[in-house]
Simulated scan of single mutants.
Amino acid sequence: MRFHTRKWVKPEDLNANNTLFGGKLLAWIDEEAALYSIIQLENKRVVTKYMSEINFMSTALKGDIVEIGIDVVHFGRTSLTLKCEVRNKMTRETIVTVENIIMVNLGGDGKPMPHGKTRIEFVRDRLSSPV
């Protein structure tokens, strides 16, 4: 799993128990999945279609640094299926896992559009090297 983003848990991210609010964490996951998909599919029009069971395994406290990891599970014709793990950066303890997040590639008309991708691509591989 590649961990792309780190978030610092601040007071405004806490719930009534003074631990990281699950809704805030899910918003971070959704944003990370969208950004990852936009870059992979090279299209700004990508939406979340589905999130499978969300397994909260531990929590985070104010001041903790969490990191969000994303991996591709499957390339569909118009979609990309991802999995996610969020962990505490310092302890490496898993905070939450999501086994399937389906992101759909959209055309200008707002309808699903084939993306033509079949494997993970890195931005550096898309750039032509100088001659």
Rank of each mutant, 00 (worst) to 15 (best):
E85T: 12
D71H: 05
A34I: 09
G107P: 02
G22Q: 10
I120H: 05
E32G: 00
P11K: 02
L25E: 06
S79V: 05
K24D: 06
R92W: 05
M90D: 13
T48M: 15
I65E: 06
N105M: 00
I101L: 14
S58D: 13
N17R: 01
V46D: 13
N100V: 03
G22I: 04
G110Y: 12
D64M: 01
R45D: 11
S58G: 11
G76S: 10
I68L: 15
R92F: 10
M51K: 04
S128W: 02
A60I: 02
G107K: 06
N55M: 07
K24E: 10
E85Q: 13
D30R: 13
K49M: 13
R6W: 05
I95H: 06
D64W: 05
R119S: 15
S52M: 03
V96G: 04
W8H: 08
P114Q: 00
E93G: 01
Q40M: 09
V96F: 06
S129R: 10
N17V: 02
K7C: 03
K89P: 02
F75N: 09
L26M: 15
K83W: 01
D109T: 05
L80F: 09
D125C: 10
M113F: 06
L26V: 03
M57K: 14
F21G: 05
S128Q: 10
F21P: 00
D64R: 00
D30L: 14
I65D: 07
E99D: 15
E53K: 14
E99P: 10
T59M: 03
L26N: 08
V131S: 13
L20V: 01
I120P: 10
I120Q: 07
E32T: 12
K49G: 13
F3Q: 06
L35C: 10
I65T: 12
E99L: 11
T78C: 01
D71M: 00
V9E: 08
D125P: 05
H115R: 10
P114D: 00
N15A: 09
V123C: 06
V46C: 14
G108R: 14
E42S: 08
G63F: 09
M51N: 08
H4Q: 07
V72R: 04
A16D: 08
K49I: 07
D64A: 01
N18Q: 14
R119E: 15
M51P: 02
V73F: 11
C84Y: 03
I70D: 02
P11R: 01
I39T: 08
H115N: 04
V131T: 12
N43V: 01
M1C: 04
